[in-house]
């Protein structure tokens, strides 16, 4: 069963890596905003170019869904990008669906890769592969992202990496 799942995952990774991936885009009339989102996606999220953060996000950028105490502004994105690069140096992000509406862009993405760097909280790398979904919501103003909601199936990812749930009592043993 586990082997089957691994084969399926490998097949999925291959398909995504082969470049045969088609992104569905619903952005008619919002092409300028779409271009800005794709620029940020390529240069900042996938390219991890820290010196391009200011090009795509406002100085008062407001992140949502972040850990308490996360700073605002360019620093928020800089931390996110550098932390992801540490834990998942080779992870690949693919846009499956991009939707524009009003002043917002919503992107449904596939995140895949191998956990070959230490995880948050100093957990050593598991070396396991993962494939999970992510939804990014960005609000644009004057061509820059002013607000972002980002949420992924992190629980699914952790489960794929072999972590299991434990009730509090069992953990205390």
């Amino acid at each position: 069963m586990v082997t089957l799942r691994l084969i399926a995952m490998a097949a999925l990774s291959f398909l995504a890596a082969s470049g045969a991936h088609a992104t569905e885009v619903k952005c008619k009339g919002n092409e300028a905003m779409l271009t800005r989102y794709l620029g940020m996606f390529d240069e900042v999220f996938n390219g991890r170019k820290l010196d391009r953060i200011a090009e795509y996000t406002s100085e008062d950028f407001q992140p949502h869904d972040s850990a308490p105490g996360t700073p605002k502004g360019h620093e928020a994105i800089r931390l996110l990008v550098t932390n992801m690069a540490k834990s998942f140096p080779k992870r690949k992000l693919t846009n499956d669906l991009i939707i524009c509406g009003g002043d917002m862009v919503v992107a449904y993405q596939t995140v895949e890769g191998i956990n070959d760097g230490p995880l948050f909280g100093g957990i050593p790398a598991t070396g396991k592969s993962f494939n999970f979904n992510w939804i990014d919501i960005c609000r644009f103003k004057y061509g820059k992202v002013v607000e972002r909601w980002g949420a992924g199936d992190a629980l699914g990812m952790m489960t794929q990496m072999g972590f299991k749930l434990t009730p509090p009592s069992a953990e205390a043993k």
Binding site: M158, G162, F163, L165, T166, E171
Partner: peptide, 13 residues
């Protein structure tokens, strides 16, 4: 309070 057992994973490793 139903956390993923990070401590267990570290110990196993």
């Amino acid at each position: 309070g139903l956390l993923l057992p990070f401590a267990q994973a570290q110990a196993a490793r």
